[in-house]
């Protein structure tokens, strides 16, 4: 028995793969920005918010973390139209990824906030900073620094998970591979190449975020 692999018919379709990779990166970037915002807000709610808010954030986090992403995506894309909310594959994908990342980011950032030494908050208080100022200038930047590796890993998990968005015909990387194999029937080769591109994207995004974090998110000499 011989296995004949032929990557050439797939490689000539490289513009499709490139475009797919760009969409995957774009989806990830938007979900990262929005999801981190949700994560920060809900982490504050869980750590310092009033009781009803604390509870609501907890329910959100547990619901999302204990159900599969694909079910969340299908619920949004196939389920919500029955309730009169019709979404394009793009908005459904962004929404699902944002909600998903937001829940994990909440738990990750909360852990960083809870680890704040008491003296840091007291120092902020004795300098007459308001509660909001203390949260954003004293508590949050070191908290993000503490949990940055975990947050970066989670962002990459969400990016890899976004392969599922191809199933609702979002034209991201896995969808491109599917398209290519439907043209030339080289399914294995198409998926191998797409998988390698994912691997490259994962490495790239990790490097990028490890570079961005100390400079723009919790940097010392930069923004305060």
């Amino acid at each position: 028995m011989r296995i004949a692999l032929d990557f050439w018919p797939v490689l000539v379709q490289w513009p499709l793969l490139l475009e797919g990779a760009a969409w995957t990166l774009g989806l990830t970037a938007i979900a990262t920005l929005l999801g981190s915002g949700i994560g920060i807000a809900c982490a504050w709610a869980r750590a310092k918010g009033p009781r009803p808010l604390r509870w609501a954030a907890g329910v959100y986090v547990e619901l999302i973390r204990n159900t599969p992403f694909i079910v969340q995506l299908f619920f949004i894309f196939f389920g919500l139209p029955a309730a009169g909310i019709k979404l394009t594959p793009l908005t459904a994908s962004i929404l699902a990824m944002t909600i998903n990342l937001g829940a994990y980011a909440t738990e990750i950032i909360r852990a960083g906030i809870v680890a704040t030494p008491r003296g840091q908050i007291e120092a902020g208080e004795s300098l007459a900073l308001s509660r909001v100022q203390i949260f954003f200038h004293v508590v949050l930047p070191p908290a993000l620094k503490r949990v940055w590796p975990a947050l970066v890993s989670q962002i990459i998990i969400v990016m890899l998970g976004s392969a599922v968005c191809g199933q609702i015909s979002m034209e991201e990387l896995s969808h491109a591979a599917n398209l290519i194999q439907s043209r030339n029937f080289r399914a294995f080769e198409a998926y191998i190449l797409a998988t390698l591109v994912y691997l490259g994207l994962a490495v790239l995004v990790r490097r990028l975020l490890n570079w961005v974090g100390p400079r723009f998110v919790f940097g010392g000499r930069g923004g305060a």
């Binding site: 890899l160 392969a163 599922v164 896995s174 591979a177 998926y191 998988t195 994912y198 691997l199």
Partner: peptide, 23 residues
């Protein structure tokens, strides 16, 4: 690294189509 750096969905596809290559 390979399994943590690639989508599970792709791993499923690769096994599904990869085993078929062996006839």
């Amino acid at each position: 690294q390979l399994f943590q750096g690639t989508p599970l969905l792709m791993q499923l596809f690769l096994l599904y189509f990869g085993i078929a290559l062996f006839g």
